[in-house]
C-alpha cells in the first residue's frame, strides 16, 4: 500500500489545467504540418498557419490557446494499492481545478443548467474513475470546449444497420457539425456498450495520439475510410472549404446487448487539449 496525500493531487491537477490550456499537444502540431502539405485551399492553408501562430503565442506567453478553456474533464486511473490520505480524492481534484482556473487566468465556463448562474470557479469537474492494478495514480486532464461538445451525439442504431449504418451516422453528424467545432477536428467514435459507455469511450478515443494506428485491424480500416470520406466532403479548415477538415478519426469498441448498437460521436476542436501525469 502506497500513501498519496491529497495536497499532491490538488497541486498536480492545478498544473495540468494550466498546461493543457496553454500548450497545444505535439501530435496536433505535427498534424497541422501534414495538413499544410495536403491542403489545396489557400484560405485553408492560411487558417492552419494562423492556428500554428496562435499555439506559439499561447505557449510562449502562458495564455490559453482558446478563450473557451472548457469543462474540466478528467480520466483518473487509481491503482488499487494506493491509499489517498488527507481527504476526498474528488474534492482534491475539484480544488485543483479551482486553483488552476484562478491562478492560470482561465475562463470559468460552468453554470447552473436552469438559472445559468456561473459557479465562479469552473467546478464541478467531470471525473471518470477507473480502478487499476498497481500503486500509482494516472490523471488525464482534457478540457472540453462548448462549441465542439454541442456537436456531439449518442444514438441507438439497430444491429441490422451494421458497419455501413455506423459510417453513415458518423458522416452525417460531421456534416451537420460543419464549422461549429473549430476544424480541423478529431472525431471520436464509441461503438457498443450502453448509452453512457458509448459516450465515455468516444471521449476516451479522443485522447489517442493523432497519427497512431488502431491495433484492431477492422477498426483501423473503418477509421481510414471515414477519414477519407469526411475530408472528401470538402469542408476544410474552419469549414471555409478545403481538404483538411478532420485530423483523425478514432474509434473505440465495446461489446453490446444483443438488441442494441449504440454509437456515440464526440468531436474535438483543433486544439484537442489533453495533458497527463502519473503520481
Amino acid at each position: 500500500m502506497r500513501n498519496i496525500h491529497i495536497k499532491e493531487i490538488t497541486e498536480a491537477v492545478k498544473n495540468l489545467c494550466m498546461e493543457a490550456n496553454y500548450n497545444l499537444p505535439e501530435d496536433v502540431l505535427h498534424a497541422f504540418d501534414r495538413g499544410l502539405e495536403t491542403e489545396e485551399s489557400p484560405v485553408g492553408k492560411a487558417v492552419l498557419n494562423a492556428l500554428k501562430k496562435n499555439a506559439e503565442i499561447a505557449w510562449h506567453e502562458k495564455i490559453p490557446i482558446c478563450q473557451d478553456t472548457g469543462f474540466s474533464v478528467f480520466f483518473v486511473d487509481v491503482g488499487q494499492d494506493v491509499h489517498i490520505e488527507g481527504g476526498s480524492l474528488s474534492d482534491a481534484i475539484n480544488e485543483g481545478v479551482r486553483q488552476g482556473y484562478k491562478e492560470g487566468y482561465l475562463r470559468k465556463s460552468i453554470c447552473d443548467a436552469f438559472t445559468r448562474k456561473n459557479t465562479g470557479d469552473n467546478t464541478p469537474a467531470v471525473i471518470n474513475y477507473d480502478i487499476v492494478p498497481g500503486d500509482k495514480i494516472k490523471i488525464i486532464c482534457a478540457p472540453k470546449g462548448g462549441g465542439s461538445s454541442n456537436m456531439s451525439r449518442v444514438t441507438m442504431l439497430k444491429p441490422a444497420d451494421g458497419i455501413e449504418g455506423i459510417k453513415n451516422y458518423v458522416i452525417q453528424r460531421v456534416l451537420e457539425s460543419g464549422s461549429n467545432p473549430c476544424p480541423p477536428v478529431v472525431v471520436g467514435v464509441g461503438i457498443g456498450g450502453t448509452l453512457e459507455k458509448a459516450a465515455q469511450i468516444a471521449t476516451k478515443a479522443l485522447l489517442r495520439p493523432i497519427g497512431s494506428t488502431n491495433p484492431d485491424t477492422v477498426l483501423k480500416e473503418i477509421e481510414e475510410d471515414l477519414l477519407k470520406k469526411i475530408n472528401d466532403l470538402g469542408m476544410g479548415p474552419e469549414g471555409f472549404g478545403g481538404r483538411f477538415y478532420a485530423m483523425a478519426v478514432h474509434i473505440e469498441k465495446f461489446p453490446c446487448h444483443i438488441a442494441s448498437l449504440p454509437v456515440a460521436v464526440n468531436i474535438s476542436c483543433h486544439a484537442s487539449r489533453h495533458k497527463e501525469i502519473v503520481l
Partner: peptide, 13 residues
C-alpha cells in the same frame, strides 16, 4: 463575418 475559431491568443493581439 467569421473570425478563426480557436485562434483566440492570436486574435487578442
Amino acid at each position: 463575418f467569421a473570425a478563426i475559431g480557436g485562434a483566440a491568443a492570436l486574435i487578442a493581439r
